[in-house]
């Protein structure tokens, strides 16, 4: 009984979320349209000013390495963190022994 109740609860929750998501998707600016709100001064400058600003023809590179280089610094820090975390997880923790 409790199991079915739980199932029903999850189902209702999923249906509600699903409906909400559906409405949200429908409401989003239409895919691929030229009138989308993302085409504002921000992307304008990235597209038209990248060469002047940074000297890079590839706009993605310009963003990653110049406009938003601070993010990229943290991107490398994420990698560094993951490396240290992997090391601390695997190395030197072996002595807890193989249980098998």
């Amino acid at each position: 009984m409790g199991k079915y109740l739980r199932l029903a609860f999850i189902l209702i929750l999923a249906l509600l979320t699903g409906y909400g998501v559906l409405v949200t998707v429908a409401e989003l600016p239409p895919y691929g349209a030229d009138t989308n709100l993302t085409y504002n001064q921000v992307s304008e400058r990235y597209i038209n000013g990248a060469l002047e600003d940074t000297g890079v023809p590839n706009m993605v590179t310009a963003i990653v390495l110049d406009y938003r280089a601070y993010d990229t610094m943290f991107e490398t820090i994420v990698l560094f963190t993951a490396v240290i975390a992997v090391l601390i997880t695997l190395k030197g923790a072996q002595e807890e022994g193989d249980r098998k």
Binding site: D34, T38, Y39, V42, S43, Y46, I47, A50, M59, V60, A62, I63, V64, R68, D71, T72, F74, E75, V78, L79, T81, A82
Partner: peptide, 20 residues
């Protein structure tokens, strides 16, 4: 027209995060 480069740039970072 060019597509918006910003999401692509962001997702580069996102992918690195995901890999980590």
């Amino acid at each position: 027209p060019y597509i918006n480069p910003l999401p692509s740039a962001l997702m580069l970072t996102g992918i690195v995060v995901s890999v980590s």
